[in-house]
Write a protein that binds this DNA or RNA. Structure first.
Lengths: 145, 145
DNA sequence: CTATTATAGTTAGATATCTAACTTTTGTCA
DNA sequence: TGACAAAAGTTAGATATCTAACTATAATAG
């Protein structure tokens, strides 16, 4: 409940920031796609979906949008004719700085009321909770074998 | 990012639990609506929206669904002809126990990897973060006066 | 009292997401 | 090597949510 509310508020704030940066229609999930491309240079749809924790159909739509606004380009993979490789365009690459700035601002917005120790403690506890949830989820899906 | 992921996982798990309890099509937001009714007995659309942190149009749809499956009933307010009062039906009231059980199970699922002290610390830190975000949000919306 | 403004709720239209089903290509195994 | 299973991606259809606009009622101000 607490976490859901924090998630909602940060999400909404992020949308506003992206719109203010001239990227209206770009939402946090698009940001996740771009984040992996900033790191790796290129990625398949499959990799982008896994990184953003979205399904492949959703990723198709996300990349459609990014391509439409000119930030990325789809290319045919040379290794595997089934695969699509997504790369940044020059316009996409140009946004690296703005994205880093927004990420930093977000982190500061969330952690500002906490001391350094408290911030680290929060991260540690959340990671514990998350690992446990992921493990439980995997155990449950393994049951259906 | 961490919180968004935890939120996604608990949300998805909740859907499964609700479906297992014979309430397929009922999602966590419907649960929030029912939660207030379990507490107060009755509530206006406006109150339900505020409690569930959803907009009024969304609440209209949520209550439509709950009415459709027979868990709540809309009534005309006697005090104010504009207001709709939502109440539980007998079928809705009968679910009080299942809902309490699912809530308890959820809390245990999230907090199980933490000690009692750690759980309390996590709540404290999250509350600090949330209060700060709500305050920042209010400050920003006040600027548009 | 009447005209304006505010409030409660709904309707309409848009968007992000999901699951299921489909196409194409690759991998496997008998 | 030829059939069948697995994988990458897309398309189609459903759902939860939002904002904007609308209707009806209540409150307020001259």
């Amino acid at each position: 409940m607490l976490m859901g509310r924090i998630h909602d508020l940060t999400h909404k704030w992020l949308r506003g920031e992206l719109a203010a940066a001239g990227l209206s229609g770009i939402v946090p999930s698009h940001g996740d796609v771009l984040a992996l491309l900033f790191m790796k240079g290129e990625a398949t749809m499959h990799e982008l979906a896994a990184f953003a924790h979205r399904t492949r159909p959703t990723t198709t739509v996300l990349v459609d949008k990014l391509e439409e606004v000119g930030l990325v380009r789809r290319m045919q993979s040379e290794d595997d004719a089934r695969s699509v490789v997504v790369v940044l365009t020059a316009e996409g690459e140009a946004l690296r700085g703005s994205f880093a700035a927004i990420s930093k601002k977000l982190a500061s917005r969330v952690y500002s009321p906490l001391s350094k120790d408290e911030g680290e403690m929060l991260e540690k506890l959340l990671n514990k909770v998350l690992s446990n949830l992921e493990a439980a989820k995997n155990a449950e899906s393994a049951k259906s074998d």
